[in-house]
Computed example of a mutant assay.
Amino acid sequence: MEYKVVENIYLLVIVTLVSVLQNAFFALKVEKECNTPAFERVSCAKRNCMDAYATFLALMWCAGLCLSQAPAAFAGVVYVLVRHKYFLGYMGQSSQSTPGYLFGKRMLFFLMLMSVLGIVNYLVARYCGSDYNKDMLETLTKAASALLLIP
């Protein structure tokens, strides 16, 4: 594998591996709670996290490859942290999981917006011959990724 290719995806790979470790943690937590009254809540929280996992991975990789790796990886890290908060909140009262859920939706929306902008930029560059927007879009998404932390 060429180092140039690896340079363009290593942050995405790291976030993906961290999210895989998180999924293993969720599975161990469900297994640990197997014979307790909290099993249903933990199992449901894991299932909810797994339902959105494929969407998260697809959006993060599309955003990173189509537009810019760093903001996509940053949003991915924030999403993993928020998903952990959601999982732990779900084990308590149901109202504790709501902030994690809403913040996770914001991360997914940002990743989708990045993906769409990257695809539109590619199509404009391919069929109109101008790629001046790529640098501007990368700068804009890097600046906007910091704004994602505002509650």
Rank of each mutant, 00 (worst) to 15 (best):
E33V: 07
V15K: 05
F25A: 14
G89P: 05
Y122T: 15
N23D: 15
A24G: 15
I9E: 07
V80K: 07
Y132A: 14
A24P: 13
T36G: 08
D131N: 10
L81W: 04
F109L: 14
L102F: 02
D131W: 04
Y53G: 10
P37L: 05
H84M: 13
R126S: 12
N48C: 02
K32D: 06
Y10N: 13
Y101I: 05
N35P: 12
C62T: 11
F87H: 01
E33D: 07
L137S: 07
M112A: 09
E31H: 03
V42A: 04
V116K: 03
T98G: 01
R106S: 10
F39V: 13
K32P: 05
R106T: 10
N8D: 09
C66R: 06
F26Q: 05
R41E: 02
A125G: 04
V5D: 03
K85W: 01
F74N: 14
M136T: 15
L88V: 06
S43D: 03
P71S: 12
F74Q: 13
T98H: 00
L28R: 06
M60R: 05
K105V: 12
L137N: 05
K105S: 10
V5K: 01
E7W: 02
N8T: 08
L117V: 13
V80G: 11
T55P: 09
C34Y: 04
Q22L: 15
K29S: 03
C49S: 03
P99M: 04
V13I: 11
G89D: 01
M136W: 08
G129N: 10
V42R: 00
D131V: 14
V15Q: 07
Y10L: 11
E31M: 02
V120P: 14
V20W: 09
V78W: 05
A73T: 04
D51F: 01
Y79A: 12
A70P: 08
A52R: 02
E7R: 03
M60Y: 02
V42F: 00
L111Y: 01
M107N: 10
T36A: 06
D51L: 05
L12Q: 02
T55I: 11
E7Y: 02
N121W: 03
L81A: 09
S115Q: 04
S68W: 01
D135V: 14
S115I: 07
F87W: 02
V78S: 11
R47P: 11
N35Q: 06
D51M: 05
K46R: 02
V20A: 15
M107A: 14
F109C: 13
C34W: 05
K4M: 08
